[in-house]
Simulated assay, not measured.
Amino acid sequence: MRRGTAAGRRDSAPKGGRESGIYAALDLGTNNCRLMIATFSNSQFKIVEAFSRIVRLGEGLAHSGRLHDRAMERAMKALKICAEKIEKRGAAQVRAVATQACRIARNGRDFIARVERETGLKLTIISPEEEAHLSVMGCASLLDGRDLDPIARAALVMDVGGGSTELSWVELAQGGAGEGDGSQLDAQQRTLRMSRHMPRPRHWISLPVGVVNLAERFPEPETGDPEAWFETMVDDVTQRLGNFSAADGLRPHFAAGEAYIVGTSGAITSLAGMHLGLDRYDRSQVDGLWMEHRHCRTVIDKLLQLGRSGRELEPCIGRDRADLVLAGAAILEAVQRQWPCTRLRVADRGLREGLLLSMARKKTRRRRRGRSKGPA
C-alpha cells in the first residue's frame, strides 16, 4: 500500500517536436486502454477524438507476477489503433502512461520496450502518487460544492482501476475548487479549460486492489448467498483502508455532511447508467451526476440478484464488465463505509484529462519563463 501527503514533483516532458495545437493523452491501465486527442487554443481544450477499449492487461497478473501473452496481445492491438489515430491527427504533444499492471509485473518494462518498437509510442510508467494527482486534476471541475446544502468543504476522489485504487482527499477552499479555481469540462461542447491554479490532494493513498485482481481473488460463486460473497470483497478492501489515518483531520467535514465522494471508474459509471435506466450508455447524462449512497445500494442489490448472465444483458454493463462491476461496487461500498457521506458525484473523466492539462500547464510555464527573460 502506497500512501503520502501532497509533495512537489515534475511531470515527464511531453513527446513530439512539431509545433501544433493538437494534444494526445494515452492511459494504459490494468483493464482499459484509453486515448483522448484534443486541440488546444486560448487556454481551452476541445476534444476531437476519444477511444477506449477493455484489454485486461493485468489478467492473471496477481497469480503469476507477469503479464500474460494473450493479455499483451490484446493491449498491443489497442495501442496500435491509438498510434494510428495519433499519427492521423498530427498530434505534436503526446503523453502516454502506464499504471499498476506495468508497475508490478516482472516483465512490465520489457512490454513497454516492445510497445515502443512496434508502435513508436513511448509509454512512461507513472508512480501511484502521480496517478492520484493527475486524476484529481482531471476531475477538477467536479470539485465544487458551493451550490450544495450544506456547502461542501472537502471531497474524496476515488479512481478505481483494474489493479489499484487511488484515493485523494481534497480540501475545498471556501466551499469549492471548480470553475473559479480549476478546469471546467462542458459535456455538450466537449471542452476542457486550463487554469493557473489546480486542486491538489492534501492526502492520498494507493491501494493495490482494483476490479481485475479483486474479482480474480474472489470469483463469483455459482451457488450460495451472493450478498455474503459481495461482503467478503468489501471486507477485504476495508481492511486495506482501515489503517490509513493521515486524512482524519477532514473527518469532521464528512460527519457534518460537508463532504462528498467523486468516483471515477468504469464500474461506477456503469452503476450510474443503471440508476438512470439508460437504454444505452450516455456520457452526457452520467458525467457529473449526483447520486446518494442509497441509490448505489439499490443498484448493487439488483446486480447481485441478476447474476453474471443477467448483468451481461444490461446495456450499461455488457459482457466485458459483467464479472468486474461488482468488484468495483465493493470498493466503492468499502470507501463509503469508511468515509461515510450521503453524496457521490460520478465522473466519466480522470487520468486522460489530467494528462492533457498537465501538458498544457507545462507549455504555458515555458512561455512565461521565455517572456520574463525578455530580448537578449
Results as ranks from 00 to 15, higher is better:
Thr5Tyr: 05
Gly8Phe: 09
Arg9Phe: 15
Asp11Val: 15
Ala13Trp: 10
Lys15Met: 11
Arg18Leu: 09
Ala25Ser: 13
Ala25His: 11
Asp27Gly: 09
Asp27Thr: 10
Leu28Met: 15
Thr30Trp: 09
Cys33Trp: 04
Asn42Phe: 00
Asn42Met: 01
Phe45Pro: 05
Val48Met: 12
Val48Thr: 13
Ser52His: 08
Val55Lys: 01
Arg56His: 06
Leu57Asn: 01
Gly60Ala: 00
Gly60Tyr: 02
Ser64Trp: 03
Leu67Ile: 15
Leu67Cys: 04
Arg70Cys: 01
Met72Arg: 15
Met72Asp: 00
Arg74Tyr: 04
Cys82Ala: 13
Cys82Gln: 07
Cys82His: 08
Glu84Trp: 08
Gly90Glu: 14
Gln93Asn: 14
Arg95Cys: 10
Ala113Val: 03
Ala113Gln: 14
Glu116Ala: 13
Glu116Asp: 11
Thr119Gln: 14
Gly120Ser: 12
Lys122Gly: 03
Ile125Met: 14
Ile126Val: 15
Pro128Glu: 03
Glu129Lys: 11
Glu130Asp: 14
Leu134Asp: 03
Gly138Asn: 07
Leu143Val: 11
Asp144Pro: 04
Leu148Val: 05
Ala152Pro: 04
Ala152Gly: 11
Met158Gln: 14
Val160Ser: 05
Ser164His: 02
Glu166Arg: 03
Glu166Met: 01
Leu172Trp: 06
Gly176Asn: 10
Gly178Cys: 10
Glu179Ile: 15
Gly180Arg: 15
Asp181Gln: 13
Ser183Leu: 04
Asp186Asn: 15
Asp186Trp: 05
Gln189His: 10
Arg190Trp: 08
Arg190Asn: 06
Thr191Tyr: 04
Met194Tyr: 11
Ile205Gly: 02
Ser206Gln: 07
Ser206Met: 07
Pro208Leu: 03
Pro208Asn: 08
Gly210Arg: 00
Val211Ile: 14
Ala215Ser: 15
Pro219Thr: 11
Pro219Asn: 11
Glu220Asp: 05
Glu222Ala: 14
Thr223Leu: 11
Gly224Gln: 12
Gly224Val: 12
Pro226Met: 08
Ala228Gly: 01
Asp236Gln: 11
Leu241Ile: 04
Leu241Thr: 02
Leu241Arg: 00
Ala246Ile: 03
Pro252Tyr: 10
Phe254Met: 07
Ile261Ser: 01
Thr264Ala: 08
Ile268Lys: 00
Thr269Lys: 07
Ala272His: 05
Met274Glu: 15
Gly277Tyr: 07
Arg280Trp: 01
Arg280Ile: 02
Arg283Trp: 06
Gln285Ser: 06
Gly288His: 13
Trp290Asp: 15
Met291Lys: 05
Arg294Thr: 11
Arg294Ser: 11
Arg294Phe: 05
His295Glu: 14
Cys296Glu: 09
Thr298Phe: 05
Val299Arg: 03
Ile300Gly: 00
Gln305Cys: 05
Leu306Cys: 03
Gly310Ser: 04
Glu312Gln: 14
Pro315Cys: 01
Arg319Tyr: 03
Arg319Cys: 01
Asp320Met: 09
Ala322Lys: 03
Ala327Met: 06
Ala329His: 06
Ile331Ser: 08
Val335Cys: 15
Arg337Tyr: 02
Arg349Phe: 12
Leu351Arg: 09
Arg352Ala: 13
Gly354Pro: 09
Ser358Asn: 06
Arg369Gln: 12
Arg369Ala: 10
Arg371Ala: 12
Ala376Tyr: 03
